[in-house]
Nucleic acid binder design. Structure first.
Length: 780
DNA sequence: GGGCGCGGGCTTTTT
DNA sequence: GCCCGCGCCC
């Protein structure tokens, strides 16, 4: 058992707490009664149900401050867990600010993953690891799995490694070790998944590596099998706080329950209505049954919203009311009036992007009758990242500054991962995955053949690849350019390895030497693609990031978890991000484009999870609307490119759920009276549709067959559809109509504003009435 | 061994 | 429409 006394993490923090005991508590004055209750109920289990914009973070940080300020706990006795590094950082900053200068940081405030890394490094041997284990990212993980899959003679066409990765990930999220996978679940991946999972775990141990899921899983396993260890931590962490509790998965839930098992001083903060991570294993059930898990729990509801206008809140409430099994909260505000939620339909996705671009500019100038918003105050929140493209394209053409939040993270970029592989190999030569990654990057003439030879020799001798390569060279198993290049690489690695101990050279200098001498920097300097300069720039940034660490080793140990991408460049820019990335943020003006069935709610979510999936999508809609402070604009398009093919789209079912009284339906530009014809656009659209052989594409067929299966959500009379109200169709069955993409057809059915049309060329389709015109209205 | 061109599959969402 | 993997050819 390791001793805690040698740990920096547990030291030094207590002075501050003692010095602060019994100070005045001004922070309590700014809280409303519910917040105050959540802050002051320090003992026993507390569930803080905090709706969107109700001052959750304020309450949470005040609670930490209160624990410290009253002398109830010392900073190192508080375990405070978040999901993102950003949230952890923010909380740290706020606590620091509230306490003033005296804080010595909180060693156990961090993400689930970062805290688990700390714990696992202390007890690595209990999981069969060394304490300097590496953390694989998804890329490494996938490469490893691919090797296992092909070694097992499995056709990776039918059973892609990706699928296996997600199966294993799910199992880990449920805290199932290879031996604990229930028989009922073992059928995945052609029944081979359990064996491959076991193999994978063995291989990880050999590599002294863990993946993301392991961080939780190993620690939970250690807690479950080593009571002495668990008890020590139960004593250490006297007060536990959990942010975003609705997002915890089973493994995290077990972890928390184990740690809180003794004293039960656990305060979980969350909002069941904002649970949007079911797809990565989050269990809304965790928050729904908190009171059962912790009998006698104090439940506090934060319902006063300080963010949005009443119309926006009402719209959000109206949508979320469609979900069953909620804990039930109703947001309210004492703000007076404000703008209704605006709704608008467009011809296609490009028109939608064009309109939003104009709208952003209008808002910026303040010409929309409202006060002007800066670009930083506006955001476009999309369901799926591929939607971003249309906006980026449009904004580039009109020169509207924008920023995309949550693109590929810094540490996931190719050049960063390559560079890190070099560093990994220098600090731990037996890192086979790192070796594989860079052995032929830059090109050294060491292709598949050569690499296979290295693999074989290494396996025969039971040594890491780097030693296998050495043996291969000694045995003259390689000739020509490849041999000399490999010798050069090995020689370099040895040399750089020796330099890690050299006090004359800083680790930043060493990193630069490695990248230069290996030819890696040169590779990008010679690269003529437009990305190359950016990549070199990133490498420079990487070196700069090293500064904060003592040495390369220390850097590598920490970096795998700091996957942040928060290089928020300054300047006025409109933000584009996914709804998931928007959680926890707020903007005066929010655009929510792409509200179309299949896109939002996402078809995949519905196919995979049925009603549960739709409910999660609905929560996503709720998250989206509640990001808006003053103006919320929802939009949809009648046609959209899907997989590069034009598709007819139906407005989202969530649009029907918006309460009419709080919605303002805007008239789209040029939808009636042949405005498009006048603008001379129909030819391009028609040509595109004609060129693309739409109706034979698999995507189209898939969508067609799904459209038939999809159950009607609710009886028509029970809904008050905004669209229906506005556009009671003036069409009749049998009428001949024209559609810009599908051509001429006859109406064979009318259902509210939706027409079923037998097109002459395109077959039978459902189309929203406003997207067709009577055939005699055609302006040409 | 590497570069290029073709075809298939695919897009949620991320620590 | 884009990315990845494969197979062909240099």
């Amino acid at each position: 058992m390791s001793s805690f006394d040698d740990s920096d993490a547990f030291e030094g923090a207590s002075l501050a707490a003692r010095a602060m005991a019994a100070r005045p508590m001004p922070y309590l004055d700014g809280l409303n009664p519910e917040q105050r209750k959540a802050v002051e109920t320090l003992e026993g289990p507390v569930l803080m149900l905090a709706g969107a914009g109700t001052g959750k973070t304020k309450a949470l940080t005040s609670r930490i401050v209160h624990l410290l300020n009253t002398g109830t706990a010392r900073p190192n006795e508080i375990l405070a867990v978040t999901f993102t590094n950003k949230a952890a950082r923010e909380m740290k900053e706020r606590v620091g600010r509230m306490l003033g200068e005296a804080v010595e940081g909180m060693p156990w405030l961090g993400t689930f993953h970062s805290i688990c890394v700390k714990l696992l490094r202390r007890h690595a041997e209990l999981a069969g690891l060394k304490s300097n284990f590496t953390i694989l990212d998804t890329d490494d993980q996938l490469r490893l799995l691919k090797q296992l899959v092909s070694a097992a003679n499995i056709d990776d066409k039918r059973w892609p490694a990706r699928a296996l990765a997600s199966v294993i990930d799910n199992w880990k999220n449920r805290a199932w070790t290879p031996d604990n996978v229930p028989a009922s679940e073992a059928g995945a991946y052609d029944g081979k998944a359990p064996a491959l999972y076991k193999l994978y775990q063995t291989r990880l141990k050999e590599l002294n590596a863990v993946d993301f899921g392991d961080l939780l899983l190993h620690v939970v396993t250690i807690f479950q099998t080593h009571d002495d260890v668990l008890q020590q931590y139960q004593r250490w962490f006297r007060y536990i706080l959990v942010d975003e509790y609705q997002d915890t998965n089973v493994a995290q839930y077990l972890w928390l329950r184990l740690l809180a098992g003794g004293h039960k001083n656990i305060c979980c903060v969350g909002d069941d209505d904002q649970s949007i991570y079911g797809w990565r294993g989050a269990e809304v059930g965790n928050i729904l049954r908190f009171e059962k898990d912790f009998p006698g729990a104090h439940v506090v509801r934060l319902e006063q919203n300080y963010r949005s206008t009443p119309h926006i809140l009402a719209a959000a409430s109206g949508v979320i009311a469609g979900n069953k099994g909620r804990l039930g909260k109703e947001l309210w505000t004492d703000v007076e009036d404000g703008e209704k939620v605006r709704l608008i339909g467009h011809w296609d996705g490009e028109e939608e992007a064009r309109w939003i671009g104009e709208e952003v500019e209008a808002m910026q100038r303040g010409t929309r009758g409202l006060c002007a918003f800066g670009l930083n105050q506006m955001a476009i929140l999309v369901r799926a990242s591929h939607q971003m493209r249309a906006f980026e394209d449009r904004f580039l053409t009109i020169g509207l500054p924008y920023r995309v939040i949550g693109g590929p993270r810094f540490y996931e970029r190719m050049e960063i991962r390559d560079a890190m592989a070099y560093f990994r190999l220098v600090t731990s030569p037996s890192d086979d995955l790192a070796f594989e990654r860079i052995v032929n990057t830059p090109k050294r003439g060491l292709g598949d053949k050569a690499q296979q030879k290295i693999q074989m020799v290494a396996r025969q001798n039971g040594v890491p690849l780097i030693d296998g390569a050495r043996i291969l060279l000694d045995e003259k198993g390689l000739t020509g350019k490849g041999a000399s290049e490999l010798a050069k690489l090995l020689e370099g690695l040895t040399r750089w390895g020796r330099m890690t101990g050299d006090k004359q050279i800083t680790h930043m200098e060493l990193a630069e030497i490695i990248l230069d001498e290996s030819g890696y920097t040169e590779m990008w300097q010679n690269d003529k693609t437009p990305e190359a300069p950016g990549r070199l720039e990133n490498l420079k940034e990487l070196i700069k990031a090293l500064e904060q660490f003592e040495n390369l080793q220390g850097f590598l140990e920490h970096v795998s978890l700091i996957m942040d991408n928060d290089s928020q460049e300054a300047g006025e820019k409109v933000s584009i991000m996914t709804l998931h990335a928007a959680k926890g943020l707020e903007f005066p003006a929010v655009f929510l484009p792409g509200w179309e069935d299949g896109l939002f709610p996402s078809q995949r979510s519905m196919d995979e999870s049925g009603l549960k999936g739709v409910e999660e999508e609905r929560r996503l809609a709720y998250v989206g609307i509640t990001r808006a402070q003053e103006v919320c604009t929802i939009s949809f398009a009648g046609n959209r490119r899907v997989f590069g093919q034009w598709q007819s789209q139906m407005p989202s079912r969530f649009i029907d759920e918006l309460p009419e009284a709080h919605v303002d339906v805007l008239t789209p530009p040029g939808l009636y009276g042949g405005g498009y014809g006048a603008a001379g656009m129909e030819s391009t659209i028609e040509t595109r549709a004609a060129e693309a052989n739409v109706y034979n594409s698999p995507g189209w067929k898939r969508l067609q067959s799904r459209a038939g299966q999809r159950p009607v959500a609710q009886p028509a009379e029970s809904r008050h559809s905004v669209i229906d109200a506005e556009a009671v169709s003036s069409h009749t069955v049998g009428e001949r109509v024209f559609h810009q993409k599908f051509g001429y057809g006859a109406i064979i059915g009318i259902e509210g504003d939706k027409l079923e049309i037998a097109f002459e060329k395109a077959g039978t389709k459902k189309v929203v009435a406003r997207f067709v015109s009577s055939s005699d209205d055609i302006p040409f």
